[in-house]
């Protein structure tokens, strides 16, 4: 019984580590989407949220769920996000490229005049 308490505590701490890391990455990705200068660079920031942030949160919740159907459903959710997010990102990127949206290819300097015209 004493033993079980420590196992529970260890699982709680591991799951907290995963979930907090995931939340930090989700927030960092969201801030990146706001901060970065053009569409193509924002796409990379959105990818941070879709991959590491989402998977970390899902793994942390799976540890919380224990051995049950909840864990199986979370695993399916994780696999599904893992498989569809690159397809969706590529679809958006390809549509933007095909429609003629030009990517920013010069060095971006937010504080050095507006010579390279990064649309904020």
């Amino acid at each position: 019984m004493d033993y079980g308490f420590w196992i529970d505590l260890a699982l709680d701490i591991v799951s907290a580590g995963f979930v907090i890391t995931g939340a930090v990455f989700v927030l960092a990705g969201a801030i990146g989407v706001i901060r970065l200068p053009d569409f193509y660079t924002r796409m990379h920031a959105a990818g941070v949220t879709d991959t590491l942030g989402a998977e970390m949160i899902v793994i942390g919740l799976m540890i919380q769920g224990g051995l049950s159907l909840i864990t199986v459903k979370l695993a399916l959710l994780g696999v599904f996000v893992f498989l569809t997010s690159p397809t969706a990102t590529h679809a958006v990127a390809n549509a933007a490229y095909k429609s003629g949206l030009k990517p920013l290819l010069t060095r971006y300097r937010p504080h050095a005049g507006s010579d390279d015209g990064g649309a904020a």
């Binding site: 901060r35 053009d38 941070v48 590491l52």
Partner: peptide, 22 residues
């Protein structure tokens, strides 16, 4: 993905946003 994520977050969070997309 883990390694690349850390690199991207470091770039996106840097105060001066020094990027050159290619």
């Amino acid at each position: 993905i883990f390694k690349a994520n850390i690199a991207v977050v470091r770039i996106a969070m840097a105060p001066d946003l020094n990027i050159k997309p290619v």
